[in-house]
Design a protein around this nucleic acid. Structure first.
Lengths: 346, 346
DNA sequence: CTGAAAGCGCTTACAG
DNA sequence: CTGAAAGCGCTTACAG
């Protein structure tokens, strides 16, 4: 039976058991063994018992790759996010993983560091490994185009580049941004800065639109000098924010369009000696763990990353089940959590 | 050629191109196409050109599962961590992913939530998908036992349950813990509490041993009432810490053995009205992002998670290359970063 | 109820 | 330099 002795004198299998091994051990054909093991098709009770016992005994674990090859349907999904060190993406990945597992799927996960180029390279490994579909926070339209061309179902999360031709799960960016901006304006602030991510133009765009709408509604003139773009990296955001905050006509409030930008603002305020909220009000899009640890607590727009992840896998599995259905965009709710980083102007 | 028209009138492939498709398109056999595509074996220059052109034209992406089946060697590794929402594991996963990708491997990633039971279930999906090896932060010895039994190379990270029979990459827990404890004792503290994770007994054990050693070296008597175990969840840690801090003979310093425990202590100090460092000194094992954001900054033992991850994949690939070599434990250095959460006692 | 046969998409000696 | 054939581990009509 293909065994050899190891150092301890115990029998150790030289190779993994295959269905053929359990078939001969149980005295049946591979067909019958397969039927018993998968539970599909007829097999006599006593044969089934012998087969199951043999599988157990031989520690048989079916080869999922061989099964895929035959059935042409895999049980893994590709997940591509920007950066796991950013709590937003980590929680998103956690949410995706949990519901995927509950639905019987495993995850092939990769990070792209925000590079559109890297995304399509990784997309190629996804199609090579024949994932059932992919969930991505896109960096450009290229990845979705690539994936669609290869007939792999994809859902965009957080950012949307292929609106109208691909499923997406996003958050009500514009509405939330407008709510925050209106809130700050309502507090009496007239110089409300907006710090957006330069690399995620789409999301930045929606958040920007909400900001503009609030300004318009409040009759406050738009000042382009206080909406600034920063790279998605704390050091860069900090420097950008410090410059913004040290000018002569500095803003009295800043709305940071995501958690790393908010961290940059937080640190920059310290750098230039501004105290929050006395000298500066700040609100963040994304509620990261540190925001409730810090004093004063940071007021933030909370997104339920796990719910986003769950919605994305559910949408993906529906898409796989019905490839012809029209594309759907799911918009998840958002919640403004008030803490202590803002104050009303006299 | 198996095509049909879609709504736009453009030709869209009904199914993915196989090597057979590119072979017929190039007018050669599958064998020759395979040789040209993999770059192994002879093929005439003009034939190679036609084959490559056909592959490009047909957007051929080789089926990695079929290739695996034939070659019996896969290019993916399984990664199993406790909880991606914990920045330690997220960074560890990021580090693993980066070096795996640089080495040509992709990641099958899963979370176990700290459950030993879940770990072995997930390990089974890893063996079913025939990963080349797995990297795990073990919750018990079971997963390593299971994996070894199935002949899949494994390296334990952060925690070590199979010392002596399995590769591992850990941090100098005991030495770092002793350093921190000695530091606190040197500041004049006599009642130094230790908060450890009940579920990770091994790591907790090493960190505990370092604590004991420092106590002994300083001639300070050990008081079991101030070493307490807490579940690895902020709420629970907070409650445990609050109880610890509200007793009559409360500690003047606490050493939290990981970042969630530290967060629990931080919040509990606020809950019971103790100010840091005036009333209480605190040091954390694990340097999470929030610790430098908060005031006062939290003194912490920094582990380089990305380096841990890189070391783990390198070790795993060496193990795969040489299955017979003896098990190796790699101990990574640690760095105490001083901030402002401790003070000397008069 | 069972088994022989075909086939999923690849790669790899081997004969020419 | 090339192609026919075998085979990786499975599943699935189909004939009995």
């Amino acid at each position: 039976m293909g065994r050899q002795l190891n150092g301890d004198g115990a029998a150790a299998p030289t190779r993994r058991a295959t269905i053929k091994d359990v078939a001969v051990a149980a005295g049946v054909s591979r067909s019958t063994a397969s039927r018993a093991l998968t539970g599909r098709g007829y097999v006599a009770a006593d044969a089934r018992e012998r087969i199951l016992a043999a599988a157990e005994e031989l520690r048989y674990v079916p080869d999922a790759t061989a099964r895929y090859l035959k059935q042409q349907v895999s049980l893994s999904i590709g997940v591509l996010v920007t950066d796991l060190r950013n709590s937003f993406y980590a929680r998103l990945a956690a949410g995706i993983g949990q519901t995927a597992r509950a639905r019987g799927f495993s995850l092939v996960l990769a990070e792209d560091g925000g590079s559109a180029q890297t995304q399509v390279e990784l997309a190629e490994t996804f199609v090579a490994s024949r994932v059932a579909g992919v969930i991505v926070t896109p960096a450009s339209a290229d990845i979705t185009t690539y994936l669609c061309r290869h007939r792999v179902p994809v859902v965009e999360v957080d950012r949307q580049f292929a609106a109208g031709s691909c499923d997406a799960v996003v958050v009500a960016d514009r509405a939330a941004s407008q709510e925050v901006s209106a809130y700050l304006l309502g507090l009496g602030h007239r110089r409300v800065a907006l710090l957006v991510d330069t690399s995620t133009l789409i999301t930045g765009g929606e958040r920007y639109a909400g900001y503009r709408a609030a300004l318009a509604a409040a009759g406050v003139p738009f000042d382009p000098s206080i909406v600034v773009g920063a790279d998605l990296e704390v050091g860069a955001a900090r420097a950008t924010a410090a410059a913004l905050l040290s000018g002569p006509r500095r803003p009295t409030a800043v709305f940071a369009a995501n958690n790393v930008l908010a961290e940059g603002v937080w640190r920059a305020a310290g750098d230039v000696g501004l105290s929050i909220p006395a000298d500066l009000s700040v609100v963040s899009f994304d509620d990261a763990p540190w925001m409730s640890l810090v004093v004063p607590g940071l007021t933030a727009v909370d997104q339920d990353e796990e719910a986003l992840g769950a919605a994305a896998v559910n949408r993906l599995l529906e898409r796989i089940a019905d490839p012809e259905a029209g594309p759907t965009t799911i918009t998840m709710p958002t919640r403004l959590v008030h803490r202590a980083s803002t104050r009303a102007l006299p």
